Computed example of a mutant assay.
Amino acid sequence: MAKSATDLMQEILFSTVLDSIVALKGASNGLPNLLVREVNSIHPNTTLADLPKDMQAAIAANVRSAFAKLLKEGYSVAPQGAEPRRASPAGAAPVHRPRGGGGERRPPRGGGQGPKRGPGGLGSKPPRPPRGG
């Protein structure tokens, strides 16, 4: 019986977290103060390059094995933005969808206008009047 996508992802993430912790311990060379310093240096804005080399290698190996495991279990792995392909039933003719000119087109959400950034945009304050005397 094939595993559900949720079970498979939980297994992959759990394994990755454990392997990363072991690699972090290894990077500290058994020195508790260094381990505490490494753990304290991890925060929400930490990038892969900020982590110790041993931990980077463990994460890279786990990502490779995760993709292999997903493919082995029958899940498709495609780059973001690629349209998912569904297997058609045996003997079914492919559906032809004409490009352009067909169907109703909807405008993007929010009228195509995102929040303004920069001066005078989202989260900015109006300029303060000059102090004068």
Rank of each mutant, 00 (worst) to 15 (best):
V22M: 12
P52G: 04
D7S: 04
T47P: 06
K72C: 00
A66V: 05
S88A: 15
I21E: 10
L13H: 14
P108C: 13
S41D: 15
Q10D: 09
P119V: 11
P32T: 07
A82Q: 15
V36H: 05
R105K: 10
P84T: 11
H43M: 08
G121M: 11
P98R: 11
A23R: 02
N33E: 15
G26P: 09
V63S: 05
N40G: 13
P126M: 05
S15T: 05
R64E: 15
S124T: 14
P94K: 11
D19E: 13
D54S: 04
E104V: 14
S4M: 00
P52K: 08
V36Y: 07
S41F: 11
P127M: 10
D54G: 03
A82R: 14
M1D: 01
A5G: 00
R117C: 00
G91C: 05
R117H: 12
S20W: 03
E83L: 12
S20M: 11
E11Q: 12
Q10W: 01
A87C: 07
N45S: 14
A61L: 03
S65K: 02
P89A: 14
R99K: 09
P89H: 14
S88G: 13
G103N: 10
R105M: 11
A90Y: 11
A78C: 10
T6A: 06
A23L: 00
L51V: 10
G118R: 03
A58C: 06
A27I: 01
A49C: 05
E73V: 02
H43Q: 12
L70C: 04
D19T: 07
I12P: 03
A60E: 08
A27T: 01
R117S: 11
P94D: 15
K69I: 06
K3N: 02
P94I: 06
Q56D: 01
N62Y: 05
F14G: 15
A87W: 07
G120V: 08
R97I: 15
S65D: 10
N33A: 12
P127Q: 11
R105L: 10
L34Y: 09
S76G: 07
G26A: 13
M1H: 00
L48S: 13
D19S: 06
S124G: 09
P126I: 03
M1V: 03
V39D: 04
P126E: 10
V77Q: 03
P32Q: 08
Q56N: 06
E38P: 03
A27W: 07
L24C: 04
V77W: 02
G26H: 02
A82P: 02
L71C: 01
G101N: 13
R85Q: 14
G114K: 06
G110M: 06
V22F: 14
A68C: 04
S4E: 00
A87P: 05
P32F: 06
A68D: 14
S15A: 12
L31R: 12
R85K: 15
G110I: 04
S4G: 05
F14T: 15
K25H: 07
E11T: 01
Q56T: 06
S76W: 09
K72E: 05
G114N: 09
P127L: 08
L70N: 00
G26W: 02
L70R: 01
L48D: 13
A49P: 00
Q10I: 07
K116Y: 06
R37I: 04
